[in-house]
């Protein structure tokens, strides 16, 4: 069952990648918020870009989650 153990370890390591996506998402939302507080009138117009950035960045985290899931189940 060594391969089985390695699977779980690998999945755990792969999930570390999600931390990067987390940092990125924090940057995105933090910068959006600070920008929105400085100029609230322009905030609504940038909401679409915020969501777009969220989706594209989140995909990176999803990639590492995918690796983890593949290591576990595939």
């Amino acid at each position: 069952m060594e391969a089985e153990a390695a699977k779980f370890i690998g999945a755990g390591i792969a999930c570390l990648g999600m931390g990067g996506a987390g940092i990125g998402l924090g940057h995105i939302f933090g910068n959006y918020l600070s920008g929105a507080l400085r100029n609230p009138s322009a905030a609504d117009g940038q909401f679409g870009r915020l969501i777009f950035g969220f989706a594209v960045t989140e995909a990176m985290g999803i990639f590492s989650l995918l690796i983890a899931l593949l290591a576990l189940f595939a």
Binding site: A3, E4, A6, I9, G10, L66, A74
Partner: peptide, 24 residues
């Protein structure tokens, strides 16, 4: 990770990594 996954047919073996190669 994307280039490894892009080769649609291959990643079954590749993407899962060497440690699970046998597992797949």
């Amino acid at each position: 990770v994307t280039p490894a996954y892009g080769q649609e047919a291959a990643p079954e073996a590749e993407g899962a990594g060497s440690d699970v190669h046998a597992g797949t």
